[in-house]
Nucleic acid binder design. Structure first.
Lengths: 229, 229
DNA sequence: AAAAATTTAAAACATTTGTTTGAAACTGTC
DNA sequence: GACAGTTTCAAACAAATGTTTTAAATTTTT
């Protein structure tokens, strides 16, 4: 099921990942976690100082593990196109969010991230600072290059959110589109397929935005054009 | 703050919307809800049969209200282009998800939807059947037309999720990109702006997909297309 | 106005919750 | 092998939770 930690601490962390992902912070109980971990009820308080301490440490350990495992950038050869960097970024991000696990119906730990997103706990602030902000910065620069010099920061932000949104949705909305029979995320190779799609879709999207920028700039003298009627 | 219902039932529903959105189902307590509603603790059980009964009724009332208020399709004139239908759909969907409310830092009720998405409760099954599936069906057909006859169901699904993902992300990830100073969803007219962006971005994305389809079809003699199985 | 039904209210109930306690078991060191 | 430090364990604790109860108040019906 997991990394099969042998220490009590590790066993608790593993179990906590599963329970917190399935039940949420409030819904999870330390008894349930200790049950699954096969440890005593007092162990959580002994090793983590309490429920929130466990949750905090779990989140950090989870994030840093996943972020280390799947980078979104690397030392590209000089002159690598922003499109190629984007493709690499998307695959990394999707891997982080989908994080294939062995289990079948087992709620993935990325659901824990999804929960944090939908219902931010105090833990989130440090997570955003430590993990999300740097990642977003990388993507921001890539998109800036793709959109070209006419793009405002707002344009870049929009496109960034469009791209990240697609990736997150695959990670978060599994319960929904599983019910709708749209996609089975358990197929092998699905992450790469989705990465290709998201990259292609987003490049097309940004091409559309860029085209629009050039048009509106060209004809901006008079009317603030919508261009999309 | 709300519709200011005067009946006890209404007051409870209003308060429940606020508390459940802020605390989640497990985190919310009936005492807190009744406190805010100014009713007796027993009233939840009397009127709704219990906490889950209240939650279920709240979700249904919330969804049907919002879905009625913001349609995603209408009687278009014969021959309306799928692109125009898409633009209308996107604006409707974004309105549903962003659902501007007066309050400032007040957790929006769309957060409740976001929570359901990230952490589906038993309530979700009926919600998906009643509300989500029909909506998805509409979008599916629009996208099918835009992508053209070469698109497989899987292609359509991918694009559908790409589009819906963008919209959902705006609704769900507010806590994150607020922290990142990417976007302020409280600006007036922001929904229309985002709708324009998402529409343009997605049309560009689908154009890219379509282009790719035509290319690969042209040279598909050997490698087998996957379809949707 | 009387009676019946509905709604509200305060208190109590049985569970469950996170946490603490204090002793037992274990680990490594001299 | 004894000892100090660490870890585990069963039990208990106080607080909080959803729910029930029983009676009073209110509304509706006759």
């Amino acid at each position: 099921m997991e990394a099969k930690k042998t220490s009590t601490r590790g066993k608790i962390l593993d179990a906590a990942g599963e329970i917190f992902a399935r039940e949420g912070f409030s819904g999870a109980t330390v008894r349930e976690i200790c049950d699954l971990a096969g440890t005593n009820i007092a162990s959580v308080n002994y090793h983590f100082g309490g429920k929130v301490g466990l949750y905090r440490e779990l989140c950090h350990s989870l994030f840093s593990t996943i972020f280390d495992q799947f980078p979104v950038t690397r030392d590209f050869p000089k002159g690598t196109s922003p499109e190629d960097r984007l493709a690499f970024f998307v695959e990394g991000l999707l891997n982080r969010l989908l994080e294939q696990q062995a289990g079948e119906g087992i709620p993935k730990k990325s659901q824990l991230l999804a929960r944090e997103l939908a219902a931010p706990s105090p833990v989130m602030d440090s997570l955003v600072d430590e993990f999300v902000r740097p990642t977003a910065g990388v993507l921001f620069e890539i998109i800036r290059q793709i959109l070209g010099p006419r793009a405002s920061e707002r344009d870049i932000s929009h496109c960034l959110l469009s791209l990240v949104g697609q990736c997150f949705y695959y990670g978060m909305a599994r319960p929904i589109f599983t019910r709708l029979n749209f996609l089975d995320l358990n197929e092998p190779g699905i992450v790469e397929e989705l990465a290709r799609h998201v990259t292609r879709f987003s490049l097309g999207g940004m091409a559309g935005i860029r085209r629009n920028l050039e048009n509106t700039v060209a004809a901006k003298a008079c009317s603030g054009g919508k261009g999309i009627g």
